[in-house]
């Protein structure tokens, strides 16, 4: 039996070790504008309290789900350093919020980023043009905006910064699934009431593996040379169903999921499409050039040996 004091000491050392190895992620409080605290005090929670001066009592209310902001996700997002009122009307600083603010028009990406040389590499204008071509916009032009897919309070650039591909896949697929796997949100945008991603993709071999390793947009968007991520979402009938689009030397994935990495690191380690190997293996797309050549040489030598042996058999018969 370990004596209690020693047991506590071991627990303390283990805890200290864990803290050293897996430090608690820090959130830089200085990066959050002070004014945001007064907003997030209510909007960062599922309930909020206010003082009813007429009744002289404190009232606790439920916050509308759509108005709840994930504080941590917001701080870590691309827009985490913004003040709430950079995008929302300053009148929101008063409570109760004036009713007319509900009608305020939301900014879209190009309102801030359009024509800005600092953001030229993101090609926001091209993204906007592609979005207008997408079947999302074509089918519901009034309902779809940038924010339908990219939550301004949590959106984070993944692919461009060479993040782990599996995290990019998860993040990007969750954007699609936020509507395509949720009837309530889906019904806001279409009259169709049934969504069953598993059923509609039942033809796909190794379905789970595909879902975990490639993004919906790999097959459902039209690749675009100037954009890292295509925004031309195609109608269902135009979705890619040909396996060799990805499972071939000229894999479509190199122009989509692995585009950033492939631009950064070309054909390393003798593998065609080597960048795919870091995270997955795609039959037909990954070919080791050295192994290919070696196998051809060995095969050639084998046939040559057999041919010479056969000739000797014929002439020495």
């Amino acid at each position: 039996m370990i004596r209690p004091k020693i047991k506590h000491l071991i627990q303390f050392i283990s805890f200290f070790f864990l803290l050293t190895v897996f430090p608690i992620p820090k959130v830089n409080a200085d990066s959050v504008p002070d004014q945001n605290y007064s907003c997030l005090k209510c909007h960062g929670h599922h309930t909020y309290k206010y003082q009813n001066s007429d009744l002289g009592i404190e009232i606790k209310e439920a916050m509308c789900t759509k108005r709840v902001i994930d504080t941590l996700a917001f701080i870590q997002s691309n827009h985490g350093k913004f003040k709430c009122t950079d995008c929302h009307d300053p009148e929101y600083n008063t409570f109760p919020h004036p009713g007319n603010l509900r009608m305020e028009l939301m900014y879209v990406c190009t309102d801030c980023h359009g024509g800005d040389p600092e953001y030229a590499k993101f090609h926001f204008e091209d993204i906007e043009a592609a979005f207008y071509e997408s079947m999302h916009y074509q089918r519901a032009p009034d309902a779809f905006t940038c924010w339908s897919c990219h939550n301004p309070h949590s959106y984070k650039t993944h692919a461009r910064f060479g993040a782990d591909i599996s995290k990019t896949v998860l993040y990007d697929n969750n954007i699609c699934l936020s509507c395509h796997a949720h009837v309530s949100k889906y019904e806001l945008l279409t009259e169709r009431d049934s969504i069953n991603i598993l059923k509609t993709h039942s033809w796909l071999p190794n379905q789970e593996l595909h879902f975990r390793n490639v993004r919906c947009i790999e097959c459902h968007t039209q690749p675009n040379d100037s954009l890292l991520i295509s925004h031309v979402v195609m109608p269902r009938a135009n979705a890619v169903r040909n396996c060799t689009s990805c499972h071939s030397k000229d894999s479509r994935l190199m122009a989509s999921l692995y585009k950033y990495q492939s631009l950064e690191s070309r054909k390393e380690r003798g593998f065609l499409n080597a960048v795919i190997l870091n995270n997955s293996y795609v039959i037909g797309a990954n070919r080791n050039q050295y192994l290919n050549k070696l196998s051809l040489i060995l095969f050639g030598l084998l046939l040559l040996g057999i041919a010479i042996h056969t000739l000797f058999r014929i002439f020495k018969h």
């Binding site: 396996c243 689009s245 499972h247 030397k249 039959i283």
Partner: peptide, 19 residues
């Protein structure tokens, strides 16, 4: 056929059938 699959290949078996 799978290892050397190509959308334009005509002499090998198709990728889907090969799988």
């Amino acid at each position: 056929s799978m290892q050397y699959s190509s959308p334009n290949s005509s002499f090998l078996i198709s990728f889907e059938k090969s799988v």
